[in-house]
């Protein structure tokens, strides 16, 4: 990013050993990161090969690798989707609040408070989810079953402990809220002042100004940010493992019963410590699937965010 190398020296500088060693070390560190990432992929693949090649009846569950992993993928995607649907509108509203509504002096402090949510370890979210949130959601779930039970998502019987897929979705939503709102905030604060002031000068109300100047400018940033949040929700482990332990029900759309699909990450955390042999390879194979899914989501998100930098529509 600096232009130190672009300025042509008056004379060819003599090659110093210190310079070469330092530059080599720096370059080596950079390359080492590429090697580590390649290593992650290679080691995961090499350790999951035994599971990929094993006969179907030796895989835990006796149905082969695909039927073992598929319900887990379903649970992972379902919980992350719920989290995304809940978190994105909230996060955008929070970002709008901090950027455009809160008093200037308070704004930085409020942003920091929201960021604190990101600092809390995921296991503590699990504790909070199972002891505080889940019991308080049970009456709400009862109400959902009574009034909206005709929708497949809300069929009964309601879990009496509140440890359900919807609870997981809400906990994950809280966990990804900070990252989505941080990126939205960053994008919103980059909206050119000329645009917002022009809108206000034409007599727009604050909401009309946001609708006309801020949302079009920040849309792709918000999409990218929420996809980064999605990536994080997909990989969340401990909160899900604590709240959903002991209920692996395969594929079901019911969100408020006590039979819920497990997620990949939580399944690994729950099964790994007691597994040996081929079961470990199977778990690593499911981890590989998770790795590929998050890789895809994250690369897509980065692409969306970086595309915004090229043509933001504001230039």
């Amino acid at each position: 990013m600096t232009s130190t190398t672009s300025a042509p020296p008056a004379q060819q500088p003599k090659s110093r050993p210190g310079d070469r060693i330092f530059a080599g070390t720096a370059k080596g560190a950079g390359i080492l990161i590429l090697i580590i990432l390649a290593g992650v992929a290679v080691f995961l693949i090499s350790e999951s090969v035994p599971a990929l090649t094993a006969p179907a009846d030796e895989i835990p569950g006796d149905g082969g690798l695909a039927s073992y992993i598929w319900p887990l993928i379903f649970g992972t995607l379902l919980s992350a989707t719920i989290a995304l649907l809940v978190a994105t509108p909230l996060a955008v509203a929070i970002a709008l609040f901090i950027t455009f509504y809160a008093p200037r002096k308070l704004a930085a402090g409020l942003g920091y408070v929201v960021d604190l949510l990101a600092a809390i370890p995921s296991i503590v979210y699990g504790f909070w989810g199972i002891f505080w949130l889940a019991p308080r959601l049970v009456p709400f779930y009862r109400w959902l079953e009574e009034n909206l039970g005709f929708i497949p998502f809300f069929v009964g019987p309601v879990s009496s402990s509140g440890r359900t897929m919807l609870t997981i979705g809400l906990v994950l939503a809280v966990m990804i809220l900070p990252i989505v709102s941080a990126i939205s905030r960053e994008v919103f604060s980059q909206v050119p002042t000329l645009h917002t002031e022009a809108a206000l000068a034409l007599g727009a109300t604050r909401w009309e100004m946001i609708k006309m100047a801020v949302i079009p400018y920040g849309k792709s940033g918000v999409i990218g940010g929420s996809m980064l949040g999605l990536g994080r929700a997909l990989g969340e482990t401990m909160a899900v493992a604590i709240i959903l332990s002991g209920s692996a029900a395969g594929i079901t759309w019911a969100l408020i019963t006590s039979a819920n699909p497990q997620t990949i990450a939580a399944n690994i955390a729950l099964e790994f410590p007691e597994s040996t042999g081929l079961a470990v390879n199977t778990l690593i194979a499911s981890g590989l699937a998770l790795f590929l899914i998050t890789l895809l989501v994250n690369m897509l998100a980065r692409w969306v965010v970086s595309r915004r930098a090229d043509f933001s529509g504001a230039n």
């Binding site: 990161i33 995961l44 990450a265 998770l290 890789l295 994250n298 980065r302």
Partner: peptide, 11 residues
Amino acid sequence: IDVMTGIPSIV
């Protein structure tokens, strides 16, 4: 490095 930021901790 962007990709690495997104690696799930369990992976």
